[in-house]
């Protein structure tokens, strides 16, 4: 009898097959081509040009070379050779610290403000134009202004994270709070629940799924932005790592950093996904 594969097994197989195809295409397109050293060329000249070696550091790496780099970097993630050369683990930790700093600052502002906006139509209408104007501004556009006023590169990148995480959380909190079912509020009012108790015991749990969706979107944006911000200001962090390796024209290391950014971004997103599941409820 033929065994039936479950849906998840099928998708896992397909995923693996896709990975194999990617590797194969990658390997075929990056096969090292032998540099032809023409007759009559000065041997010293050839040596200065890299000795006819086909592995210039800036050429696109083969999967094997890539694997080796990943292994090397991951086997020693926390080395520290001075201010400009640190392991990938340390760089990621710097970026995460900045992202979390800016993100929680934004949460501390956006959630209370969102409550106020969601609870009152007047406040909502008054603040709406500001939010609409500020929301679409690319966070990096704030960078020069931040550097000029804050006068500190690291604080400026935290500010940029703050400003880009603020809006999705603010809007979603306001939306969640405004859409709490009227019945529940009416019942609370009949039972003479005090305002603070009402906020924490009724509105917050009811709006939590929407708020968490906002936080998840904010975190995604923050992680996108930190890389660009660190490439601009330099110093430390995964964005600086990308810039530094680009400065060396080392595509292998840049690819490695891209992979790491993806993995960490996925991890952050799934944390908020799990949190979202925990606060979800059925009406």
């Amino acid at each position: 009898m033929k065994t039936r594969l479950s849906l998840s097994q099928k998708s896992a197989l397909l995923s693996l097959a896709l990975f194999g195809v990617i590797l194969l295409v990658w390997q075929l397109t990056t096969l090292p081509e032998a540099k032809v050293v023409a007759d009559g060329i000065d041997p010293e000249y050839a040596a200065l040009m890299g000795g006819g070696a086909s592995t210039a550091a800036s050429s696109f790496p083969t999967p094997a070379a890539m694997g080796q780099t990943v292994w090397e970097k991951l086997s020693d993630p926390f080395y520290d050779n001075g201010p400009n050369d640190k392991g990938i683990g340390i760089q990621l930790a710097y970026s995460l610290a900045r992202v979390l700093g800016g993100f929680f600052l934004a949460a501390a502002v956006a959630i209370p403000l969102g409550f106020a906006i969601g609870n009152s139509r007047v406040v909502y209408a008054a603040l709406n134009p500001y939010v609409q104007v500020l929301k679409p501004i690319s966070p990096l556009a704030w960078m020069p202004l931040a550097l000029y006023t804050i006068k500190d590169a690291s604080a400026s990148s935290i500010f940029v994270i703050f400003i880009c995480s603020l809006w999705p959380m603010l809007i979603n909190t306001a939306l969640g709070v405004a859409n709490v079912r009227r019945d529940w509020l009416d019942v609370s009012r009949t039972l003479e629940v005090k305002p603070l108790r009402l906020a924490f015991r009724v509105i917050l749990p009811a709006a939590a799924p929407t708020i968490l969706t906002g936080m998840r979107i904010s975190m995604g944006i923050a992680w996108l932005v930190i890389v660009a911000a660190e490439m601009l200001v330099g110093g430390t962090g995964i964005g600086y790592f990308v810039w530094n390796e680009w400065n060396n024209l080392s595509l292998t290391n840049v690819l490695f950093a891209i992979l790491m950014i993806g993995v960490v971004g996925m991890a952050l997103d799934s944390i908020f996904g799990l949190l979202g599941k925990r606060v979800a409820y059925q009406e």
Binding site: P83, N84, L147, K151, D152, V233, G234
Partner: peptide
Amino acid sequence: VSLQKTAGWAVIRDKVQNKE
């Protein structure tokens, strides 16, 4: 001395002007 590798000339200018 802590030697700081910097991302570009404009950043150098700003960090010197900010007294970083």
